[in-house]
């Protein structure tokens, strides 16, 4: 009897081990989690002789993650986003991207981003990030003016995207934003700058985005909000 019990236990362990191996290999394909804001489809567009899906992705950056956050949620119709009025990160006085830190776009689509920027800023460590990289035409449009970069000594945030390891792609995108027109008195509801740019989404897979302007606390500005997941960082799911 004892032998049979032990035999069965060994068998169960072996099955679990094999199951884990299969599970480990099967989890290759990554899916966007719930709470992800999907870009809105606005039809198709001709780009370089190819017809592509045209989608629009809207988000904003705010001096704190309380103010406009709820409004943005409503505007985006993203009622299912968990956390309601407060940013999921749980630190309402920190600046954040809204309405979410997780975005999704279709692979190969022509993506137009509309970015409402309300935060203050300062000088960036690496002037490289004051320049636009990887957009269509290498430009962005700020309040209707097309530019290839912003003032490296007075900028707010960047939207910098790279493939996560495991996503085979040479994709790279980095777009800076100018500071709020209210400067250091930035508020959640006034002085906004509208930044628009377009890019062609890369291959299917997971991409990480983060802000490269050190808008956090501590020496170097990379503490707190920059070192914590969810405010100045997140994922772009290309599905």
């Amino acid at each position: 009897m004892k032998r049979i019990v032990w035999g069965l236990i060994s068998l169960v362990i072996a099955v679990v081990a094999v199951g884990l191996v299969i599970f480990g290999f099967s989890k290759q394909q990554y899916q966007a989690p719930t709470g992800t804001v999907a870009a809105k489809s606005v039809g198709t567009i001709q780009y370089q002789g190819m017809t592509r899906d045209h989608v629009v992705l809207t988000f904003g950056t705010y001096p704190d993650s309380q103010g406009k956050y709820g409004t943005m949620l409503a505007a985006e119709g993203a009622a299912s986003t968990p956390g309601g009025n407060v940013h999921p990160g749980g630190n309402p006085s920190w600046p954040a991207y809204a309405p979410s830190n997780q975005f999704s776009v279709p692979a190969g689509a022509y993506v137009t981003v509309v970015w409402h920027q309300y935060d203050s800023g300062g000088a960036v460590n690496d002037p490289y990030f004051a320049q636009v990289h990887g957009t269509i035409g290498g430009t962005e449009t700020v309040n209707g003016k097309t530019i290839t970069g912003v003032d490296a000594n007075n900028m707010a945030h960047t939207f910098t995207v790279r493939p996560a390891p495991g996503t085979a792609s040479g994709f790279f995108l980095s777009v800076p934003s100018p500071v709020s027109s209210l400067g250091n008195n930035a508020a959640n509801n006034a002085g906004g700058q509208t930044v628009t740019f377009s890019f062609i989404a890369g291959a299917k897979g997971l991409y990480a985005w983060n802000c490269e302007y050190p808008c956090g606390l501590g020496i170097g500005g990379f503490g707190a909000v920059m070192g914590s997941y969810g405010y100045m960082s997140g994922y772009l799911h290309v599905v």
Binding site: L20, F23, G24, F25, K27, Q28, Y30, P33, A164, P165, G166, T167, L206, G227, S228, Y229, G230, S233
Partner: peptide, 13 residues
């Protein structure tokens, strides 16, 4: 680490 881009926990965690 069982799969390349597992999201069991956030990078911060």
């Amino acid at each position: 680490l069982i799969s390349p881009n597992n999201h069991l926990i956030s990078p911060q965690t």
